[in-house]
Structure formats: structure tokens, C-alpha cells
Amino acid sequence: MAKKSIKVRAKAKGDMTTVKCLISHPMETGLRKDKKTGQVIPAHFVQEVIGTHNGNTVMTAHWSGGISKNPYLSFKFAGAKKGDTLNISWTDNKGAGDSLDATIK
């Protein structure tokens, strides 16, 4: 991955950590047509997003092309404290992916 494709903000408040992440991805459904050529744009979307904290998978998201372009995901989990590392990784239907370690603030 040439460019960072994930932005994560994780904030701990008491026992609860709120994670907000943005992934840059075109999220093509495979139903849209190219306006110029009339060709169908092939499906290209993020299939799986996984959030891991201390080796514990806190969130597994399975997506279809029905999620908006440059997807946003927010979730909450308990059991983490400030300074911990949270790993977010994604894989798309073409096998590409990225992963990022974020520090919980």
C-alpha cells in the first residue's frame, strides 16, 4: 500500500472505548455503468474489516457494495485503556487490503 488507506480515532472513556475509522476505497457495487463507455464497472468493495485489541477480535464487519464510498465505521468495546494499541485491517473482494495500528487515547 502506497498510501495510508485507514484513519482511526480510538478514545477511551472509563471502561468503554469508542472507535471511529475511515477507509478510503471506491466501493463499487458492480451495478454502476461508466457514463462514457456504457461498460459496467466491475464490483470492487471492502469485504471484511477486523478490529483487534490485545489479540482479541472485538469487531468483525462483513460488508457488501451497499456500503458508501470511503466507508465509515464506528463501534464501541470494553476492556481497553489509554495507551493500548488497536489494530484495524481490511480486505477487499480483489484480495487487496491494509492494516493499521492506532493508539487508544
Binding site: 478490529g51 469487531m59 456500503i67 476492556g79
Partner: peptide, 12 residues
């Protein structure tokens, strides 16, 4: 089906 989330240990 747009998305399906599997909540892990401790997830709200």
C-alpha cells in the same frame, strides 16, 4: 444486505 457485524468479546 449491506453489512453484517460480528461482535467480539467486550464489544458493545
Amino acid at each position: 444486505l449491506t453489512s453484517n457485524y460480528v461482535l467480539g468479546n467486550g464489544a458493545e
